[in-house]
């Protein structure tokens, strides 16, 4: 990456794997799980969070010398809430069906701990460009996990990706279904998301033993 210095590139790359917001920092689980039954919803959620994080980190970083530390939480909440209102209105205007599926979870981006966490930990103490990269990096790390969960849940639960059947037709019994494969309805119910995240954590920590928790 010639465009970015190595240090800056790490801001983006770190959260994608070894410092992932969901699997390592345990932030932003709430919205990650509820909307991942379909790949499309996961992707839209990821894009929304990337937008809110990128812009939000820049705004907070610009304001970091102006905000009195006593009321910073409220100031941060107002910035996020404004950005989320923008996202919500855009979704309602251009993807109404999807915004119905996401329902209150768009609003819950406000209390997504990743956003507040990064504001507190990074944007309040760093320059605009680096905060922007940090925001994008963390939101991407979040998005990656979301898309992985969405991919497996939709593929195994409904046999589709983005609503397009990829494993054959369950009614006409073509493709995989012709040899007796059945959709796993279990993947559609909410608790399955938790188990998928648990398995992702398991895989990640088996590959990188340094991440294993003591006790």
């Amino acid at each position: 990456m010639a465009l970015l210095s190595k240090k800056d590139a790490n801001l983006i790359l770190d959260p994608l794997a070894d410092n992932n917001p969901i699997t390592i920092q345990v932030l932003g689980i709430c919205s990650a799980l509820a909307i991942t039954a379909e790949l499309k919803a996961s992707l839209v959620m990821a894009v929304s969070v990337i937008f809110v994080m990128g812009v939000g980190n820049v705004v907070i970083s610009l304001l970091r010398n102006v905000i009195p530390s006593k009321i910073r939480i409220i100031a941060q909440l107002i910035v996020v809430a404004t950005l989320v209102i923008v996202v919500d209105q855009v979704l309602k205007a251009f993807a109404y069906e999807l915004s119905k599926t996401l329902s209150v979870f768009v609003g819950l981006i406000i209390t997504n701990c990743i956003i507040m966490g990064r504001f507190e930990a990074f944007a309040l103490g760093n320059g605009v460009w680096r905060s922007f990269l940090d925001g994008i990096g963390n939101a991407l790390g979040y998005g990656v996990i979301l898309v992985i969960i969405g991919f497996f849940r939709e593929l195994l639960g409904s046999g589709t990706l983005f609503g397009i059947p990829v494993l054959g037709d369950p009614i006409a019994k073509t493709g995989l279904y012709s040899i007796g494969y059945e959709n796993n309805g279990f993947m559609i119910i909410p608790p399955a998301a938790l188990i998928v995240v648990g398995i992702i954590i398991w895989v990640q920590r088996s590959r990188n033993r340094a991440l294993i928790e003591e006790a």
């Binding site: 699997t23 345990v26 608790p191 399955a192 998301a193 938790l194 188990i195 995240v197 648990g198 398995i199 954590i201 398991w202 895989v203 990640q204 920590r205 088996s206 033993r209 991440l211 294993i212 928790e213 003591e214 006790a215």
Partner: peptide, 13 residues
């Protein structure tokens, strides 16, 4: 590798 966070997720599930 499941200790801590991982097993908590699975139990919650």
């Amino acid at each position: 590798p499941l200790r801590g966070l991982g097993i908590t997720f699975i139990i919650t599930g």
